[in-house]
Amino acid sequence: MATSSDWAVEATGLVKIFGDNRAVDGVDLRVRTGSVYGVLGPNGAGKTTVIRMLATLLRPDAGHATVFGHDVQHEAQIVRQLIGVTGQYASVDETLSATENLVLFSRLNGLGRAESRAKANELLEEFGLTAAAKRPLKNFSGGMRRRLDLAASLISQPPLIFLDEPTTGLDPRTRSQMWDTIRRLVSTGSTVLLTTQYLDEADQLADRIAVIDTGRVVAEGTADELKSSVGKSSLQLRLVNPADRDDAVRAIRSVLGVDVTLSPEAARITAPMQDPDRITDLLVALREQNISLTELAVQKPTLDEVFLTLTGHGVETDAATQPDASETPKGRVNA
């Protein structure tokens, strides 16, 4: 049996009701110390509300949660000494400069005047913000703001860090920088609980993932477990010469041993992909038969597909208004 220190977060039956909206409706979570835990769900699923309850910012209407064994309600002040929170919307002071923010939060964390200054400089350096340190935050890009926000959460070197949608709205380069930062954090022994709308982000970072929809956990497991519950990726081919279609279909059948789907104009062939290694064999076979491709793509399961499989309904806005949303390759849920 696990002792309480094995778990950074243990929550059972968390409920939060806003008016008649059950924003969080009986959520259980267990986050192992030293791991990265991803909470995956579309906009409005209740991710932020869960984080706010765990971070002592919001009182649960029912249920119970502990952080390193300390009750978030009765030992809130202890819990606050153990966590760092990076909110979905920048939780830094917009009117101050980056340095002023970090010095202020260092002072509030109990550091002395000189220590605070040193800490601020160290963090600015660490997060590549030294050049912008004196500028007001109004001119900061989304990525810089997020980095500053994260830096502010690390002042007290908390063993548990909450990151609420750390990369939403960031460009791909800034996003992968943020991923690197999160990975480095984890390598120092921090436990990270992050929320995201992106399946690939949870996949990249999280050891375990909880999929949350309308306030409930609809699936929980490792990324691999989740994906296999959704089905594998699919392979898409587009031919230079549509007349090669039958030969190509035959080749796929014999090499991959699966049936294919043809698009209406018949130029595109989609095949379920079980084993990525076999693709090489298929490509060799196609070349031997002189079948040229204009396009080759591997499509991962999207969040929409995860949802469809797990809940029986798609991500609401997308499923209802954008029938082809499931074709976007990254699983991004439109806000």
């Binding site: 220190s5 950074a8 110390t33 952080v67 390193f68 064994g69 300390h70 030992e75 809130a76 002040q77 202890i78 000494q81 153990l82 109990g110 800490k119 160290e122 963090l123 660490e126 690390l154 070197q157 908390p158 063993p159 548990l160 930062t181 480095r184 954090l185 120092t188 022994g189 921090s190 436990t191």
Partner: peptide, 25 residues
């Protein structure tokens, strides 16, 4: 020394208080 690369003290081994003193206030 770098903040992010130094090891973080585990949650269980920290000395913690659930109240705030007047001085701290």
């Amino acid at each position: 020394m770098s903040t992010i690369t130094s090891t973080i003290q585990s949650g269980a081994s920290r000395e913690l208080r659930n109240h705030v003193s007047v001085g701290q206030t």
